[in-house]
């Protein structure tokens, strides 16, 4: 039975949650993109031990549930770290960012960001790798025949094509980051899903709370899709007939 809209106060909670979700997802995506690229390069290293280690790392992070990884970083690591460091991490101090007035993030935020970033990086690394593999091998031969060095071939021929091929799947991975960020509610991070659950507990308006959360998620994901379309509409090579 529909029992009215959420009170403005609760919508405010949800919007705060959305802010945390967006901030967390944006940071995690940036970290995961950079780290994913580095992991991909290591994975393709000519050195067998390096490539092997990277492969093991990637499969460990891809093949275990994100929820378990979040618990690992939140509970497992806090059990391992010395008490003094934990106390310091949990203390409400400000460093460096003081000028901007940003508060030191709570430990669940650090653990959530770390877990989400590492997990997503493993998937992004594989998207980069797939992109590199789908550049035709003849392209390398063409570069070599022109006298280009391996480094020049990588930078001017392979990577630009690989990134073009990988960017749609990578955008998909960024959408996954937004969706997966909801799991951080399990370690107490006050993001959108957490907020929805709180509102529901407070108001018993489960349909409204989770309905609004759903709309927010759809909006965020659609925004990413829209941005990527906009960005590539300009830079993608024109196809088909002459301009």
């Amino acid at each position: 039975m529909f029992d009215g809209f959420l009170a403005p106060r609760y919508i405010g909670w949800m919007i705060d949650g959305l802010g945390v979700t967006l901030g967390l997802s944006a940071l995690a995506s940036v970290i995961a993109l950079v780290l994913g690229f580095v992991l991909c390069v290591l994975r393709l290293s000519p050195s067998r031990p390096v490539a092997g280690l990277a492969a093991a790392w990637l499969s460990a992070f891809r093949n275990t549930p994100l929820l378990v990884q979040l618990f690992f970083w939140y509970f497992g690591v806090s059990a391992l770290l010395p008490d003094s460091l934990m106390a310091w991490l949990n203390a409400p101090h400000r460093i460096g960012v003081e000028a901007f007035g940003a508060p030191w993030p709570p430990f669940e935020m650090l653990a959530g960001l770390l877990g989400l970033s590492l997990y997503s990086a493993a998937f992004m690394a594989e998207e980069f790798r797939a992109g590199i593999y789908s550049v035709a091998p003849g392209q390398t031969a063409a570069g070599r025949a022109l006298g280009m060095t391996s480094t020049q071939i990588w930078i001017s021929i392979i990577l630009p094509q690989a990134v073009r091929i990988a960017r749609a799947p990578l955008a998909g991975q960024v959408m996954n980051v937004v969706k997966n960020s909801s799991l951080t509610m399990a370690i107490g991070l006050a993001e959108l899903s957490y907020a929805a659950r709180q509102v529901e507990t407070e108001t018993f308006q489960a349909f409204q709370a989770f309905g609004l959360a759903t709309l927010f998620y759809i909006g965020a994901v659609a925004l990413i899709g829209g941005f990527s379309q906009l960005a590539w509409g300009r830079s993608s090579p024109p196809t088909g007939a002459a301009r």
């Binding site: 035709a136 025949a145 006298g147 630009p160």
Partner: peptide
């Protein structure tokens, strides 16, 4: 070798132009 290759032109069956 790279210098030397630059002085030997090669044309491939599948063109291998750089599509980007």
């Amino acid at each position: 070798l790279t210098r030397l290759r630059s002085r030997v032109g090669m044309v491939f069956q599948h063109f291998e132009l750089f599509p980007h």
